[in-house]
Nucleic acid binder design. Structure first.
Length: 717
RNA sequence: GGGCACUUAGCUCAGUGGUAGAGCGUUCCAUUCACAUUGGAAAGGUCACAGGUUCAAUCCCUGUAGUGCCCACCA
């Protein structure tokens, strides 16, 4: 029997152990020894357990949040693998279109280059190189964290076969009338020069001013006087007594900012009589609400602000000025003309780009939209209804009920989704134009056709990830592993990603892509701050893992935090679990001394019986926690049992027997202790895979009929 | 404007319809023991506040206060 070194040398051993696992082939469901006799009567041998890994954005290095998802999913996967399932954890990487382009834009600016001056193709290739380099780097990091994923099945969101699936979906949705191109109001970020989906817009409160302006016989209130140049319609409520003397469609003269105009009154019940003066003018090009009114009454729409945020010639003397500077000047002029009645402080939510915080400018632009609430031409339910039904019927469940309610509430008020982005990095929309004609297809329909310059929202493609990755992998994978079992990801992308996956999955395959949604929290620093590069409070998981060991980091991430709440990670906590690693190591060193008296056929004593009973109770408890996805409770139970029952009490109690002259009883005692310790190792393995695997190998422990080697990763749970 | 969550030991957090738990920290004791990356012990909480349901509430219900978060095209 080999002597154990004084410490578990995680730095050199972790990579070695990982290589051993990889070489074993056990990360792949195809190679699992689920039918071998050690698993005797394995009831799960024909069952699959699948998790599709949320593909990390390949535009940087892993942060501690990634370590949390790796740990959480790896625990589920390792547990099920040991329980005898055909277990697949399918890894991947996301090109993360807009996100990555933003990251790369910053890099370019740092280098003193100008993003908009670089030709599209060159930019694409540069970002591609950047992304692929990051992708390789991150794969190494995922492995360092112990991810027992099947790398032979890894996919990337820009793989040709994945793109082909995405094109197919687009075509099907288009044929079904669910995808349409329309010149509608979109959220335009003047800095990033792209439209944003509604979800990509945030609404910070801004202390603003409400301007009351004289508009002919009316007084209107607005927070954006700089958009008002072309306003020719004033709207009031039909029942508003203040305006009873005016008739619907009545025309009147207005002395306006740049001279007299002819205006028209429209009475519409959408007006809120309690707000401002109950009268407003409309700017259909730059307000969604006004756009709807203009559509309703077929009113003209005119662009006032250009794509960079500057006023157009309609603004007269203000043309060419940026709106951020023009407002004050315009108000000054109105004041001079006696048009400014009064001002009021006004705090309201102003839409802004979620990336740069620049105020979003509503603009009209032809874009591709995905209808959320419309029924497909071929019949059946709308995407929204499909998803709602899947959740209501229990086909998709949430481990945290709160998120189920969030999901359903969000679904209630869904508007059509703008899937076009005016960026270069991503999958270009497979639509071709010639005059007024539109054709959908991956390749050009012929001479004279030009392809849409826009690319899909990343979420449009990643929303198809579960079935796309399985359809494009080994033959039979889709049938075997879809629908998957668990979708484990952060709650912050419940709407962005989880909701879209449910909709697309149901639409394309008739089945929800996963049965259970497990959402973890966002890792915070000790001041509760969300970690971000800009705040410089990022914890590098590989850094702390290098210092304390990956097992300690994993335990610290999973212990003491319930699913869905935001964990706070501190170095103290990691250090505590590093101590546990050492404790485990020393327990191994201790039992190792007695393995020469391991073999005995004698029956155990009543006390041993009792000890083994307690072990069974702990196993049962840990197993049921794992089955309920209460990973933190499972971790704490087994941690507590191992340290404070087995190490502190049992070993101390058994010492006299182990050293007794009665060799027969010593053999029984060590047999019992061995059993207890080896079960601890098994239970700890999903949480602390490295140290447990190493100890298992050193002790050459075998399950009674484990004829195929001694890797803990496939020992029977 | 809607909605949700949280408030438990000095700190960070678990947890449960039956007189509260962990880690870290603090105090005391032990030390040629597998392990000082240790062991034993201790101090420390009216489980935010006020009502209600119950034989019994920290846990269920209602309200209040504070904190945080999500959603939202009202000028």
């Amino acid at each position: 029997m080999e002597e154990l070194p004084k410490h578990f040398d995680h730095k050199t051993l972790e990579p070695e152990i990982y290589k051993r696992w990889e070489a074993s082939g056990f990360f792949s469901p195809d190679n699992l020894p689920v039918g071998r006799s050690a698993f005797g009567g394995n009831p799960n041998k024909d069952k699959a357990f699948t998790i599709i890994m949320p593909p990390p954005n390949a535009n940087g290095s892993l942060h501690i949040g990634h370590a949390l998802f790796v740990t959480t999913q790896d625990i589920m996967i390792r547990y099920k693998r040991m329980a005898g399932f055909k277990t697949l954890w399918l890894p991947g990487a996301d090109h993360a279109g807009f996100e990555t382009q933003v990251v790369y834009t910053k890099k370019i600016e740092k280098e003193g280059r100008r993003f908009w001056e670089i030709p599209r193709e060159q930019l694409y290739n540069e970002i591609k190189d950047f992304t692929l380099a990051n992708k390789t780097f991150m794969e190494g990091q995922l492995k360092a964290l112990g991810a027992s994923a099947d790398w032979s099945r890894e996919k990337f969101t820009l793989d040709e076969d994945i793109k082909a699936v995405v094109y197919d979906t687009f075509k099907m949705l288009h044929d079904d009338g669910l995808i349409y191109r329309g010149a509608r109001i979109i959220n335009w970020c003047p800095k990033h020069q792209t439209s944003l989906a509604d979800l990509e817009v945030v609404h910070p409160e801004v202390a603003d001013t409400f301007y009351y302006l004289k508009y002919g016989p009316f007084t209107i209130a607005t927070a954006r006087p700089e958009t008002k140049f072309g306003d020719k319609y004033v709207i009031v409520h039909p029942d508003d007594q203040r305006y009873a003397q005016f008739k619907d469609r009545e025309q009147f003269d207005v002395e306006w900012i740049n001279g007299p105009i002819k205006a028209t009154l429209i009475k519409d019940p959408m007006m809120d009589m309690t707000l401002g003066t109950g009268a407003m003018t409309i700017t259909p090009w730059h307000s969604a609400e006004d756009f709807d009114l203009a559509q309703k009454y077929d009113l003209p729409k005119e662009q006032i602000i250009d794509w960079t945020g500057k006023l157009l010639p309609i603004a007269g003397e203000f043309a060419g000025q940026h709106i951020s500077k023009a407002r004050a000047l315009i108000v000054e002029k109105m004041k001079g003309k006696g048009l400014l009645v009064k001002t009021e402080p006004y705090t309201h939510a102003v839409p802004a780009c979620y990336k740069c915080g620049t105020a979003v400018e509503p603009q009209i632009r032809p874009q591709w939209f995905l209808a959320m609430t419309k029924e497909p031409k071929k019949g059946g339910k709308s995407l929204r209804d499909l998803a709602v039904e899947a959740v209501n019927s229990g086909a998709v469940t949430f481990t945290t009920d709160r998120f189920r309610l969030d999901f359903l509430r969000w679904m209630e008020n869904l508007r059509d989704w703008n899937i076009s982005h005016q960026i270069v990095w991503g999958i270009q929309i497979p639509a071709w134009y010639k005059g007024d004609e539109i054709k959908i297809g991956e390749t050009s329909p012929g001479e004279g056709w030009t392809q849409d310059a826009d690319v899909f929202s990343t979420w449009f493609s990643s929303g198809q990830w579960p079935f796309a990755t399985l359809m494009t992998n080994r033959p039979g994978d889709f049938e075997k592993f879809y629908p998957t079992d668990v979708m484990e990801t952060g709650w912050d992308i419940l709407f962005f990603w989880v909701a879209r996956m449910v909709m697309f999955g149901l639409y394309r395959t008739g089945k929800a892509p996963f049965k259970t949604v497990y959402l973890h929290g966002l890792v915070r620093d000790k001041d509760r701050q969300k970690m971000s590069k800009s705040k410089d409070n990022m914890v590098d998981p590989l850094g702390v893992a290098g210092e304390y060991g990956t097992d300690a980091v994993r335990m610290a991430l999973v212990s003491g935090n319930a699913a869905g709440t935001d964990p706070i990670i501190s170095e103290d906590k990691i250090r505590g679990y590093r101590n546990f690693t050492t404790k485990l190591w020393n327990m191994a060193k201790f039992v190792l001394q007695f393995t020469d008296v391991f073999e005995t056929n004698d029956g155990v004593t009543p006390r041993d019986e009792e000890v083994l009973h307690e072990l069974e109770a702990v196993k049962k408890q840990v197993t049921s926690y794992l089955d309920e996805y209460k990973l933190h409770l499972a971790a704490e139970s087994i941690y507590h049992y191992t340290w404070h029952t087995v190490a502190d009490k049992l070993i101390e109690e058994y010492k006299p027997r182990l050293n007794s002259v009665d060799k027969a009883d010593a053999a029984i005692a060590i047999k019992t202790l061995m059993k207890v310790f080896s079960e601890c190792l098994k239970m700890l393995h999903p949480f602390m895979p490295f140290v447990t695997e190493e100890i298992w190998g050193k002790l050459a422990l075998r399950s009674p009929s484990g004829e195929e080697g001694t890797m803990l990763i496939v020992e029977k749970w």
